[in-house]
Computed example of a mutant assay.
Amino acid sequence: MTDAAASFDAQRPALLRVAYRMLGSMADAEDVLQDAFLRWAGTDQGVVQVPAAYLRRMVTRLCLDHLKSARVRREDYVGPWLPEPVVETEPVEDVTLPLMLALERLSPLERAAFLLHDVFGESFEDIARSIDRDAAACRQLAARAREHVRSERRRYPVERDHGLAIAAAFFEASRAGDAGKLGALLAQDVRLHSDGGGKRPAAGRILAGAVEVLRGLSATFRLRRGAPELIRQAFVNGLPGYVTREPDGMVQTTALLIEAGRIKAIYVMRNPDKLRHVEALVH
């Protein structure tokens, strides 16, 4: 068991990265890795030539099984759905939040083929062994996925410090309830995604356009009792943003998609079930 744990732990960061991007949930990704470890511990590791590839195939298959049930649960979700936020000190460019939302619209096999090939650089021959399809079919799956998510690729990556400066300005204007300063930061076609999961107040749908987004934000300012406390600036799923302690005592993450110096999308996570790992980080 000790050897199994050591060899698995060596691959754990890469495996968690695959599972999270497949599932959009850190808690589910951790569950998949626990299942994968138990299976790995029961495997005759002496016959496994490349443990990293073997474990990646195992995790991919477990994720595909999990996605079948996750899709059923997602149909009953209250309000807009966002993936669990991953908070980091530096931007990660491979799979940003908008791209993860685009991946949600793909079939599980398309998602697997795209991520494994376009993001993690695996050959179609290796992917074929992971998802039980031939290499030609995997190539077609990845091509279809690529077509669907092309518009969500980062076209205008924002410079790190500039992105954080805009996020800081957005926070200050939000804390002050200054609609004029907020309006100056927003693109005309901005969209606001707010995920409360039915557990905390949030917009019941995606708000579209600067006028509607400002109206929604202004309503939030009127209803809150007190001002949010900034815990830290950060990159949330690859986008500039921040973590706050809200007046109700709960943590919240805000991520901003920025293009040409304006905020194109706002992603607010309020669902406490998806913020447990963030709460643990800030304590």
Rank of each mutant, 00 (worst) to 15 (best):
F8W: 06
A10Q: 08
R12M: 06
L15I: 01
L15N: 01
L16G: 01
G24L: 03
S25F: 00
Q34M: 05
Q34E: 06
Y54L: 00
V59Y: 00
C63G: 00
R73Y: 15
R74Q: 10
W81Y: 13
P85K: 06
V86I: 13
V92R: 09
V92Q: 07
E93N: 02
P98E: 12
R111F: 01
A112P: 11
A112Q: 04
A112D: 05
L116Y: 08
D118V: 08
D118I: 03
G121K: 05
S123N: 15
F124K: 02
F124S: 08
S130Q: 10
I131T: 06
L141I: 01
A145C: 07
A145I: 05
R146G: 03
R153D: 14
R153Y: 13
R154S: 14
H162W: 13
A165W: 15
I166H: 08
A169P: 07
S174K: 04
K181D: 11
Q188A: 10
Q188G: 15
D189P: 12
D189T: 10
L192C: 09
L192D: 14
D195I: 10
G196D: 11
G197Y: 08
K199R: 15
R200E: 13
P201A: 12
P201Q: 10
G204C: 10
A210H: 04
E212A: 15
R215S: 14
L217S: 10
S218C: 11
R222H: 14
L223S: 15
Q233K: 13
F235P: 01
N237P: 09
Y242G: 10
V243F: 06
I263S: 03
M269N: 14
